[in-house]
Structure formats: C-alpha cells, structure tokens
Design a protein around this nucleic acid. Structure first.
Lengths: 363, 363
DNA sequence: TTCAGAGATGTTTGCGTAAACATCAAACAA
DNA sequence: TTGTTTGATGTTTACGCAAACATCTCTGAA
C-alpha cells in the first residue's frame, strides 16, 4: 500500500508540459519495483548516494548510509540487475553448457558449480543441449551470447566446438571440463589417466591376467582418456588389450555390453568406464550366472553414493566432482577478473575405493 | 577476424570533442558487441527499424528487412538482453529453486524443465539451496528477485516458504512441484497417492498380509503423501499400518532402515518411498541373508533408468518426470502471460512397473 | 587569515533497447 | 483536385543504474 502510493507518485519527468489529450487513466503499468530514485527520494539523498550504499562503497557517512538502508527496507528495494548489467557490462552470471542432465557425473559437477557460483555471488544459467551435433552447439552459443553471461563452463569435448566451426569469442572467458588438454581452453578435469591406471592395476594386482574394458562414448574425452590409460597399463604389464565395446554411459548400454562379456568364458576382470555401466554389466553377469567377484571381478569409475549399495558393493574409482566444480568456477572467475590469462590445465586426483566386486581369480 | 575488424571500428560517439589531456591510449574498453545503432548505420536505416526487424514485427518492407538482416550478419549483431530486459521489464528467464541436485528425481525434473524452457525461448537460472531452513529460503528469494526472472518454479514443500515468513510476491508467477495442493500456489506434481496405492496394492494382491514402509523425509510433501496413501490402502484392506521409519531419500538412509527391517522376521513386503532407498534396503536384505523376492518383496518409487539393473531388477512406480517438468513450464508461461490466474493443481499419472523384486509370500 | 586537501554528496550522462509519437509518401475516396 | 487513410520509417524518450565529473564542507597547515 504505502509502497504503491509512493511508487505511483513517481516523477512527471520533463516530457514537455503539453500532453493535453491524455487518454483516460494511464494504464496501471506492470508494477515495477521501487527504483533507486524512489529510495533516494524516500531517504532524502541523491540517487548516486543510494547507488553507493547499494554497492557497498565506503565513502558514505554512517548516518546517511543508515538512512538509505532504512529507506531501502521500507520500500522493499531490490537492485535491478538488468540495469546494472547494461551499465556495467557485467552480468554476474555464468553459463553452463552441457549435453545431458541424465549422466550422474555431470549432475554432481553441476551441483558443485552451482553452489560455488552462488557463493561467489554469481548465478548459473543452464543451457541443455540435446546432442553433440554441430547445430546444437551453435544454437547454444547464440543463446549464451544473447543471454549475456560473464563466462561459460563447457562440460564436453571441446573439439566438438571446433567441428561446429565455432570459436569461443576471445573476450568470453571459458573453462572446459571433460576435454583434452591443449585444446586452447582453460581446462579442469579429473585425472582420468590416473583413475584408469588405478582401476586396471588393481585388477592386475589381484592376479588377473587380462582386463576387459567397457568404454564410454567415443565423443567423450574422458572416455577416450580412460580407455587409453587402461590400454597403456595393460601394455606396461606386457598384456595385449582385448577389444573394447563402447557404451553411452547409460546403465542399459552397460547391460548390453555386459551380456556380451558374460558369455565369454575368458572374461574374469572388467573395468567399466563409469559406475552406471558397471551396474548394467553386473546385472548381465548375474543373469548369465557369472558370480561376482568369485568368477568375474569388476571395477567402475565415479564412486556414486549409490555404488556402495550395488550388489555386490562396487569397487570403483572415486572422482571428486565437488572439487572439479569448485575449481572450474575459481578459474573462470579469475579469467573474468582478467587474471590468469594462461590457458592452463588443472587436474584433480582420484583414488581407488575397494569394495566387494573384485577378488583374486579362482582358477 | 572480419567481425573483429568491423567491431573495433566502432563509433567515436559524441562524447564532446574536447578531451585534450587524454590519458595515453584510451583504455581498450571491454569490447561490447555491435549495438542496434551500429547495425542501423551499416544498413542505412534508423535504429527503430532495426529493432523492428530484430523483434520480427511485420510492418517493415521486405527489401529493408533484408538490408538490415544482412547488416546484422555482417556485424555479428546480437541483441543485448540486459537492455531489452531493462526496457521491457521482461527477462525471458525463469528461476528454479531446489534444495538438492543430488536427488535423482529432482534432476530428472530439472532436465525436463530446462529443455521445455529452452524450447520456449526462456533460459533457466539455478538457485541451489543448501537446506530447508528459513534462512536459506529467504536468501534464495532475494537472489531470484535481484536476478529478475519472469517466474519461478519451486521444487519443494511450499509450506517451508510460509514457515520462512515469505510470500511469493503476487506479481511473480510461481509454480510449485512437490507440495500440497491448496497451498495457494499453482501446483504440478506426480499423483503421489495413486502411485503409493498402486505399490501397496500390488504387494497385497500378491498375498502379503502386511506392507512395511520406508518413508522419505518428513519435510517433503511427496514423502508425506506417499506415506498417507500407503497407510490408507492398508487401512482399506483392514490392516493396521506398521511403524514407519523415515529416510532422507538417500541410498544410505535406505540401507540403514533396511538393516532394521531385515532383522525383523515378520517383514516380508516393503514399499520404499523412492528407488534409491529401495536400493539401499536391498543391500541390507542381501547382507542379512533375506532373499529377494523369495523371502522379502520390495517396491520402489521413481522408476529410474538404473532400477532395471538393480539386483534383482526393481519393481517400482513409474513417475513421468518429463511431463511434470513440461507442464510446470507450460503453466508458468501461462501465468507469465497473464492467463490462467487460477492457482490450480495438476496431477500427472503413474503406473506400476513389475520386475523381479516382488513375489507371492513363500509358505 | 587563506587556501589546499580530503571526504561526502550531488549532477550529468549514456549503456542498448523499444514504446510512443511524428513524419512522409503512396493509394484511394469524394 | 483535395483530403483521408494506410503503411513504412524516423525521432524522441525513458527504462534503472553507476561511472565521471562537479560541488560543497570540513580540517589543518602556511
């Protein structure tokens, strides 16, 4: 009420005094909240002083500041970010481009990003993509540029951007997760190589003479990196890597591949590129009567909260999604602030979590 | 390159010709993209005409429009949403407030929301909350108001808002998911009652004489509703409901409660309020030697993609997250457009998916 | 006393856009 | 012819904010 009254009392502006044929009652224009000018009037100061208080500048006398703050409260004033952004060119918002919200790993990373961004006073704008086709990527970029964000975090293979004939505008800070180093972008990611090596070595150390691999999609750098490291680890042990079948991260794809592997009596050790595919593979093994871990050992990658409760509880590689998300934001904010112009690559460590899905081979 | 070159050629503006003591080279002011005025100059028309083309208004001659579009392309023009928002009061953005990104159900819903919003030309701004305490909710609202969104979707119990002494500003359209009907907000949700009834009836129909329940957190309306419906279904069958233990949706909480239930020889049928807790409970049952479904039957709620691959594959209630998300956006956009002022409640149907975790009792 | 310096506060201005209004030419009716 | 309508286009203005600059009021030193 009070506010309303004040708000409508707004200035007549200097729009020339001559508007005689005023058409009926002015439309009750969609109530915009009180502006900085309203607060200024209420507090008896200038708009600029209100702005200073609003932005926490120091050079305002204590009593004045108090008066302004009270006026703000009374009017329920909230700064208008659109105006602020228009004026300052800063949006206090970062965009996240990702393909799918259905991959648990991405979810966890997004969660961490959102939390870290919020703590830094940034909001997160989501741009979901439907698939890794050039068109989809382009569309996202257009949208992000329109949206005007201060920077972006991209959670997929950066070379897809290149394929799509896109370069991130040089003035738009970007951080890439799940991509190759030296892609030309700042990068933060889990140490995929270490994780895959840990998983493979664990199985080898148990006495297995070979390790099969359920790979992730070939469009994913994480997947490719994990596979390469698995292959290298086998090679270092003098073992020739068996053929790889690639899933799409989904549980069902793991199940399909798992059925193939389960039918092969030579398979006694499996390294799945993520926990979800490992889960699917375990179902296939169960269905085909292969005991885990007595007959077949399996290791996953991710360490989801759920993996402890898979049956049997899954031995897996722990990924620190939290840290990846946090570091991404940190690096991005630094770039936004104009620091750290280097396109560096940061890697977050992993570790092996041994549970019940692996054991020494029977023979 | 080309674009770059054009962009830097930007107007000198009419900032008064007299700036003699110009300090060195003018700071290479953060390159703002080309504005509507640049396009207008390039195309030899007025800014207003460019605006008309940009907004797809019809009253522009074809040849003129073409000239403008070409100029836009040449300059790489993108409308500035901040300016547009400032002018129009519309932000083409909707906010999503949610507690946790770690609950799979919320994730799936968020995914659907983001997709539907994108299709409607809206972006999604994420506001993660750390917990259901009043302070957290308040903070989120402040942030959302500052962020200036056209509407919000709230994925949690609406009464928490009331507890927090907050009312959604009447002029801010809102849709609530996972909340009680008649909460005063427009509501979209899965038909919790139907789902819980389906689950309970299924177990009863199999011949079980009682059904235990693993409940969700008491702060969740979904959880309370599922529990109430389970209780009512038992009551209708002349059965007194056994005591309920409440988890927090997490797999681990399901495991803890599952261990209690597994130790009780009377327990032969369990309805878990979500699939994750069912997974945890199944692990507990396995560990304590209770066969599923020979000795104990269990039904979940959600029907995650993973549930097919749990061991045994989980019988569960299918929730259509996709539809819930899509309808939320539809209703919200209607409210934003000023239509459908009624605070109605929309319910999305469920169905039972029978897999391998349920069977008739032994004897 | 006089003035320089420092800090508080006010005034002007423009960010990019679109509504409101103004103008102008062509088409048409009287 | 002359005026009226219609559609295309240009001009002015304000959206809310915060830089840049201007002013004003104290201190304290010369």
């Amino acid at each position: 009420m009070n506010i309303q009254g004040e708000a409508t009392k707004k200035p007549v502006h200097k729009t020339g005094e001559n508007t005689p044929g005023n058409p009926a009652a002015a439309a009750p224009r969609a109530s915009r909240g009180p502006s900085i000018a309203d607060v200024a009037r209420e507090a008896g100061v200038s708009a600029q002083t209100v702005s200073r208080v609003s932005n926490g500048l120091t050079n305002v006398e204590e009593s004045t500041k108090k008066r302004v703050v009270e006026a703000m409260k009374r009017l329920g004033y909230r700064p208008n970010r659109a105006a602020r952004a228009l004026k300052s060119g800063r949006f206090k918002s970062i965009g996240v481009i990702m393909f799918s919200l259905t991959s648990f790993g991405n979810m966890r990373t997004l969660d961490a990003i959102a939390t870290a961004a919020a703590q830094a006073g940034y909001s997160v704008t989501l741009i979901p993509l439907e698939g890794p086709t050039p068109g989809m990527v382009t569309g996202a970029y257009d949208r992000l540029r329109e949206q005007e964000v201060d920077g972006v975090i991209i959670i997929f293979e950066a070379h897809l951007l290149d394929q799509a004939d896109i370069t991130v505008p040089e003035d738009l800070p970007a951080v890439v997760i799940d991509s190759a180093p030296k892609s030309g972008y700042t990068m933060v990611d889990t140490d995929q190589a270490e994780g895959a090596r840990l998983a493979t070595s664990h199985l080898l150390g148990l006495g297995h003479t070979n390790v099969w691999h359920i790979g992730g999609p070939t469009t994913s750098f994480s997947a490719k990196h994990r596979e390469a490291s698995w292959r290298a680890t086998l090679h270092d042990a003098g073992i020739e890597a068996p053929p790889v079948m690639n899933g799409d991260w989904s549980t069902d794809s793991g199940y399909q591949i798992g059925r193939e592997l389960a039918r092969n009596p030579d398979v006694h050790a499996i390294f799945a590129a993520n926990d979800q595919m490992a889960l699917g593979a375990m179902r296939a093994l169960h269905e085909l009567g292969r005991a885990i871990p007595a007959d077949v050992s399996i290791v996953g990658f991710d360490d989801l909260d759920e993996s402890t409760s898979f049956w049997p509880p899954l031995t897996t590689i722990h990924q620190d999604f939290q840290t990846v998300g946090r570091l991404s934001i940190e690096h991005l904010l630094q770039k936004i602030a104009g620091q750290s112009p280097a396109n560096d690559a940061t890697t977050v460590g992993t570790h092996l979590v041994v549970r019940k899905s692996t054991a020494a081979p029977a023979h």
